[in-house]
Design a protein around this nucleic acid. Structure first.
Lengths: 339, 339
DNA sequence: TGACACGATCGAAACGTTTAGATTAGCGTT
DNA sequence: AACGCTAATCTAAACGTTTCGATCGTGTCA
């Protein structure tokens, strides 16, 4: 900018005024300055600007795994929303690891992001500490966090799983396996509650051996399914609480020589784009990813626009059961259907 | 930092020296300073640091679509690599649009990213201009760019598709439909060349009505497939040059009442995680996403480490044909196989 | 004891902006 | 002709770091 000012024989203040339109500058000077900008190929240094202005027009976004299609979609939506608003997005993947998340958030905060959208991981205590002394707005995504009182957008996980399990029960299933991630994050906790609630509502017993905990990955779903299917009294249906783990479930079913839905019914949380082109077409709980991403972005953009003091807002969205052909009717129901 | 210095009754220079370890500071002062840092909860302002140091330890990454599983995986790998190296990643999606890409890259450059990894879009001329006057290292990913002489990592697309089409030919297919994106980007151009080369090598005619251009999206694959399958002399196999479009192909096959592989064989570019758990299990050309991402990251990290003057490096990786069950043998071959 | 080297610490400039406040010129009023 | 007002422009400080060179004790050696 100094060079531009010199070349145009004006002060840097005038150049700044012209670029930002913060003051009127005469036509002659405007022209001289614009010419100089072109000649020199000047580009404003956003870092210096950020330092002075105290805003970076950049937000931080952390998700556990970008390869999980749910997060892929949400990231995509959020990225687009902030792009439209002229913000850049710094993306971090925490790999479901508490320390990594810690580091990542500090990294983002160091870089003076204007705001943060976090799909948190693990225990909320550390996050609480970070959020409290970061003086930037934070939006929690997908996972609520006890004690952290800030804008949040989540799904009604319990209800969604309740609906899915009830659907299976109505098909005649009585022994329904349930594969979940560690329940230290709210979705897993709430989904499990939905499972228990549905069984309870139908007057069915809860068989603890049919509940398996994994670590969100394909291999965990695989192992859990293998164990369940090897037992003497195997379930007739399996519900997987996330998407990567259901892949493991399908592979286990295949490897053990069974088939879906003939031998075992399968449903899972999170829809994906291929659900209805390949066989079996998985019955899933679809999250409104578009809405989730947009709402999260809107909440943060609203704070960034200056609405700092409004009380924390909690948005709870509804999932949708996508019924396809991976679950088959059992027993009497099956007969009446096929009759 | 000023406050810390005052609280510890030292100069800011000493605080800086301690934090960065750039000079020895006595035990007493160290202790006083550390105490002050804790008391105040001081965090170094990376923006001010960047301004002074001329480096942001942030890189920019642009991809056409993050929801395309190929890019999802590559982004994930790159993100991890830079995370390990202490860099942040700013992610932009260009949506296969030239102007968007233009804006995004300027946005990133404005923010003084230390380097750029670009899976470019459209015509290379504008990109060339941007890259030339950005004085940061740029790595081109997935798509080469005529006239832009910089580090690049791409697939041997022509060879990969040649192998896939040759495989179909060996199965007995003679009329093989080909659905591609616009050929202004190198992968589409090269993959098409592989298609033509394979037919030519087998002495087969090239039927131009079997080559359809789309715009990379599912709907394009759907429309192209519909057109081909409605013709009086429909192909016995279809190859789709990217992943989203093959979904369209599968949907079209379903909607028109045919089935794969019984009525029509399908193969495509880009593998995805579910390929081998659902039916039909798609035969695909798998890109070595891990290697692609790591190599791109390494090329850029090497430049960032100071190796600025080395001549541009071009890495060409090999694809791998993943043969599954979505393509069936035809005619005499089928009979000899079933015999 | 004086000169000197060395280690620890500090002062101040610099990075490239923005902006409050000062200055200047031009012009209409009285 | 002196005055005040407005519009245009400029000067200089500030944002929070890093770092060069200066300063100041302290201990060593001749």
């Amino acid at each position: 900018m100094l060079h531009v000012a010199e070349a145009a024989r004006v002060s840097v203040a005038t150049v700044s005024a012209l670029i930002n339109g913060t003051a009127t500058v005469s036509p002659e000077l405007s022209q001289r300055i614009e010419q100089a900008i072109r000649d020199i190929g000047y580009k404003r240094n956003a870092i210096a600007r950020s330092l002075k202005m105290g805003t970076t027009r950049t937000i931080g976004l952390t998700v556990p795994h970008i390869t999980n299609p749910f997060f892929t979609d949400v990231v995509s939506v959020i990225q687009q929303a902030f792009d439209r608003a002229g913000y850049a997005v710094m993306l971090c993947c925490t790999d479901e690891d508490l320390n990594t998340q810690d580091d990542q958030i500090r990294l983002l905060l160091d870089r003076m992001v204007d705001g943060l959208i976090v799909a948190r991981v693990g225990d909320g205590a550390i996050l609480k500490g970070i959020v409290d002394d970061a003086n930037v707005p934070v939006v929690l995504l997908d996972r609520i966090c006890e004690g952290v009182d800030t804008d949040t957008v989540v799904l009604d996980n319990q209800r969604a799983v309740f609906d899915a399990i009830t659907y299976l029960i109505n098909l005649g299933h009585r022994r329904i396996g349930y594969i979940t991630g560690t329940s230290d994050i709210s979705p897993m906790h709430d989904r499990m509650a939905g499972y228990r609630e549905a069984l309870h509502a139908a007057g069915l017993p809860i068989a603890e051996e049919l509940i398996r905990f994994g670590n969100f990955h394909e291999i965990d779903g695989y192992n859990a399914t293998m164990q369940m299917l090897s037992s003497h009294d195997r379930p007739s249906a399996i519900f997987s609480a996330n998407n990567p783990m259901v892949i493991g479930t399908m592979k286990a079913i295949r490897d053990i020589g069974l088939s879906c839905p003939e031998d075992i019914s399968v449903a899972c949380f999170d829809d994906f784009p291929w659900s209805d082109v390949f066989q079996p077409q998985l019955t899933t709980v679809a999250q409104p990813v578009q809405a989730i991403g947009e709402q999260a972005a809107n909440l943060l953009l609203d704070r960034l626009a200056g609405n700092r003091d409004a009380p924390p807002r909690k948005l709870v969205l509804k999932g949708r059961l996508m019924i396809r052909n991976s679950c088959r009717p059992l027993g009497a129901i099956a007969q009446s259907v096929s009759a």
